[in-house]
Amino acid sequence: MTEFEFEKARFDFKPIREFAPDKTLVAAGLQWWEDRHAQNYWTQQIKIWLIAGAVLILMFSLVPLFVGVWLIAIPMLLAVAGCVGGIVYLKRLPNWRYRSIIFKKGGEMIAPQGFPSAETFHTIEGFDFRSIRTIEKYRNPLAGGFDVNLFLHKGDMITVALALHDAAAHKVAVQLNQAWREMLQAEVEEEVLNRSRRDGSPPRRR
């Protein structure tokens, strides 16, 4: 990772705010520039297994009198071929991409570029952002970086950013918390306004 790429990952963040004609907030979120840190991790792991498999195949091929040697060598050859295919696939993925999360009026949360564990899903059916308890970064040793997770009141967890560098994950968590709280406040203010309209009394100024 070059110094330029690291600085871009740290500071290329775009807060998202959408307003109705009457200036009320209808959507808030964040767009960030995400590197494929987890992809690089798995590429390294596959390379290690690839080298180990190649060494074992070489050892077996040097012992032609070993009974049933090819019964072991052939599956290993297939495994090595699978590792090569995995590396080729991972290397063809872009190393960098934008990702964003947006909280919308009414409780909806959308991910225009998909969720880390489900790239083709852009929303979660039945999800309401008012069910979120907190948004935090979390160290992910397996992927070699930091995730950003939504922790819900019922104990569930939703990962919205995967294997970021520490500084980037911290900023994503802070900015998403701010966007989420702004939408919660907008929902409360709209409820107060609607109640005052029903009661025929002007809303109280805070």
Rank of each mutant, 00 (worst) to 15 (best):
I72D: 01
K105C: 06
G68D: 07
P75I: 13
V63S: 09
P64C: 08
R99F: 02
L142M: 11
V69G: 12
N149S: 03
Y138M: 08
K104T: 07
E125I: 06
S131A: 14
A73H: 06
A81H: 05
L90K: 06
G68W: 00
W70R: 01
S131D: 11
V148A: 07
A81C: 09
S100I: 00
T120R: 14
A81P: 03
P94N: 06
G126C: 05
L65N: 12
R97T: 10
A81Y: 03
R133G: 12
R97K: 15
T120F: 02
A79M: 09
E108N: 09
I102K: 06
D147M: 07
S100L: 06
Y98N: 13
I72W: 14
T134W: 00
E125A: 10
Q113F: 12
W70E: 07
S61D: 13
I132F: 04
E119T: 12
A79E: 05
F103D: 02
F66N: 05
K91G: 11
S131R: 11
L142Q: 13
M109F: 05
I124W: 13
R139E: 13
S61L: 14
I110R: 02
S61H: 11
F127I: 14
Y89F: 12
F121A: 14
F115S: 04
T123Q: 10
M109L: 15
A111T: 10
H122Y: 06
T123S: 15
I132P: 03
E136D: 11
G82A: 12
T134L: 09
G126L: 02
V63I: 13
I74P: 06
R92D: 04
G82K: 07
V84N: 00
F127V: 12
K91S: 13
V148S: 04
F146L: 08
I102T: 14
L65F: 13
A111W: 00
D147K: 09
A73C: 02
L65Q: 15
P94S: 08
V84E: 03
I102N: 04
T120W: 01
I87N: 05
K137P: 03
T134S: 15
